[in-house]
Amino acid sequence: PGGEAVAVAPLPVIALGIDPAVALALTRAGLKTIGDLAARPGDILVARFGALLATRLRRVTGREDTRLTPRRAVAACMVERRFAEPVGRREDLLGALGLILGTAGATLEERGEGGRLFEASFFRTDGVVRRIGVETGEATRDAAALIRLFAEKMHLIDDPSDPGFGFDLIRLAVLRTEAQMQRQARLDGRGEADRETVALIDRLVARFGRDSVVRLVDRHSHIPERAEAMRPAIAVGATLAWPAMRATRPLTRPLQLFDPPQPIETLAEVPDGPPATFHWRRTTHQIARAEGPERIATEWWRDGESALTRDYYCLEDREGRRFWVFRQGLYGAETTAPRWFVHGLFA
């Protein structure tokens, strides 16, 4: 266990059990062994050869567990509380859950851990079980913060069509834990912004759902509209790092991008030169200055219209408005009728 990737690295790609045509295409691209594939980013493989190849690769290299697990995994920490009489009021259930969270927090503190995924199970007297899950952006054992997250979801235990006879047992399971060191408070009060951001993300996720609160993450692509991706904010964390920008020259990328780029009608002095005028949104712009081109080729695995080369220009019209436009397709080499698009606006 743990050595699968090294063991299968020298095997040919056909050992993945993939379609022979896909294996031939990989071999022609220079990816002859499983080790060659494992060194490539997964999103590139999915874009070119489909999700099945990436799934087979994860399973063969041991990065995805394929065992059948009919039983639920044992929680890292579990605390429960029974009631002598059934409890039906939501406020009483939250109060009892707060006591349980305090007990679980003390147990986690002894281990030097914090929870990332919590599940509260409410057992009704007639055998019905209601479960509420809460996920946090970083390891925590703060009972007060967690009880606020559970309060956002307490409506899930209500069933107007079948109110039942109350709950006689609450069980809290900490399904995922991480190491958590004790934090030292700084005298200047700094360092709190990240924690406040994480707490805000946790509350928004609890209220609107995991997939409704997202943030941009850097993605390795030189194509402007593919240079970032949307990921659930709770999975990325508040300490997201972006590549540092050099401030030695003006920005080469606009602050506002259009996705997708918007087509424009242009008039140029030469076919492969910058436009002298262009018409966009019922307005004709007379170009006073132009800088470029900056040539950007598409990824090698893409085909069709999206595979055409782009020549980008920074344009400034006579009113001082600045645009980022590109010509799609090399004139004469890739197409006889290249198209123009405006991709962004500079401030």
Rank of each mutant, 00 (worst) to 15 (best):
E4L: 15
A5V: 14
A5C: 06
A7H: 11
A9Q: 06
P10D: 05
V13M: 09
I14M: 12
A15H: 11
A21T: 10
A29F: 00
G35F: 01
D36P: 03
R40N: 06
G42A: 14
L53K: 05
L53I: 10
L57Y: 10
L57H: 05
R59H: 14
R63V: 13
L68S: 15
V74M: 10
V74W: 04
V87C: 07
G88C: 08
L94E: 13
A96I: 03
T103I: 01
T103K: 09
T107A: 13
E110R: 09
R111W: 10
E113N: 10
R116T: 15
R130N: 10
R130S: 15
G133I: 13
T140G: 12
A143C: 00
F150V: 06
A151I: 00
S161M: 07
P163T: 10
R171N: 08
T177K: 02
Q180P: 00
Q184C: 02
D188R: 02
G189D: 08
G189P: 07
G189N: 12
A193N: 03
R195C: 00
E196Y: 09
A199W: 01
L200C: 15
R207Q: 14
F208D: 08
G209S: 07
L216M: 14
V217P: 11
P224E: 13
A227N: 11
E228Y: 02
A233R: 01
A235T: 12
A238L: 01
L240A: 13
T248Q: 12
R253I: 05
I264A: 02
T266Q: 08
P271A: 09
D272M: 05
W280T: 10
R289G: 02
R310H: 08
D311S: 15
Y313E: 06
G320T: 10
V325S: 07
